[in-house]
Design a protein around this nucleic acid. Sequence first.
DNA 1: GTACATTTCAAACAGGTGTTTAAAAGTATG
DNA 2: CATACTTTTAAACACCTGTTTGAAATGTAC
Lengths: 219, 219
Amino acid sequence: MSSKVQTQQRILDAAQSLFAESGFNDTSLRQITTKAEVNLASVNYHFGSKKELIQAVLQRYLQVLMPRLDQEFDRLLASQKPNDLTQILSVFVKPLLDLNQLQRRGTRTFLQLLGRGYTDVQGHLRWFINHHYGRTLDKFVLLVQQSCPHLPQSEVFWRLHFSLGSIVFTMASSDALAEIAQADFNEAVDIEGVIRRLIPYLGAAIAAPVYSQDLKTVA
Amino acid sequence: MSSKVQTQQRILDAAQSLFAESGFNDTSLRQITTKAEVNLASVNYHFGSKKELIQAVLQRYLQVLMPRLDQEFDRLLASQKPNDLTQILSVFVKPLLDLNQLQRRGTRTFLQLLGRGYTDVQGHLRWFINHHYGRTLDKFVLLVQQSCPHLPQSEVFWRLHFSLGSIVFTMASSDALAEIAQADFNEAVDIEGVIRRLIPYLGAAIAAPVYSQDLKTVA
DNA sequence: GTACATTTCAAACAGGTGTTTAAAAGTATG
DNA sequence: CATACTTTTAAACACCTGTTTGAAATGTAC
């Protein structure tokens, strides 16, 4: 009995770090099972397929993170007046950083995985997250819309995807970026530093005024 | 003689559309040569390897785009007073849209390829672009720094990478996003629309004030 | 302690990958 | 025309991928 969960755990642990480092496509089951020191076939035995393993790896974080975010969103939605955008974005910080208690380097790993999830794979992870946590995400969108009454819904849609791009891309390549920052600016940056840098950036971006289109008609 | 360039052209054309659609890793040489109606071996014969084919596909656009951007950057740098950030970002618009004269759907394809280039592959395309066009990119960074004297260099570095993330991610998934926008908001969005939406967003983001750091003492 | 169920294991499977080979076809040049 | 060079072709190469198989080992319950 305990050997079963041990094997599953070993696979998940090995998989998550390899996935975070090299992406889903570029990590083979053989690499995972070698690192986990389990038999190749055990991935399919315990998880069914590689696709389901990927989902299981992300699920381990999402099932902790998302209920906490959902709770925070409810709290903000309960207040009468619209919330400040920076405030809304800041509610992500603590739940994200608390993932470090779930796993060593949990925050970093999860965000890297999320990045990989949106860039590597075409559809199935996007669908998976939306299917399981769409309700929570909708609350977030609503909050942002309330805080930006000057923006049409479609503009909020685009800007949130622009923002998702920043996050996901930054996290997928956070190792490389941190290295450059270290070399060029002698600046030690951890994942918390990146998150905190993102908040004012995204806050200003999402709330930016929409410029009228007619003054920039180019030839 | 002309059959040689014809074959190379056919390969490049087929490769670019498949790469843009499915990414580099998920497009095989057999798919490319089938679509191009050439022999499988001709890719290696004419380009050496898949890696070099990828670079050749991007190079076809970069060698047109980058000199034009370089020129625009020089023009802005020549002016005495610092330039407005929105102005700086706007110089991308025309050179990018002119790629449509190079190829049908050129702008869209190029930006998708760029997105794939930064998300799919780990290193070699990043290196390739920096190696060939680093001087031009440096001019852009300088312009941004001049327009944002309140920002430390390292902050500009991070924010430009956040911005790169928005662009690259949006472009890599632009088809999916445009579909959603169409369905949810009955909004037809072409690539030019996306570019124009990005400018005020990125302008506000990059120039955003830096919030005081002292509240971020880590545990 | 036997019977049953779960888990592990080595091996093979079927299919895909980028690349190389050596002969064939085509094309210029003397 | 014959020579030399370039390009195309079909086939094979060596390797890697996720998945399946059936037997062996282990664990669990009566």
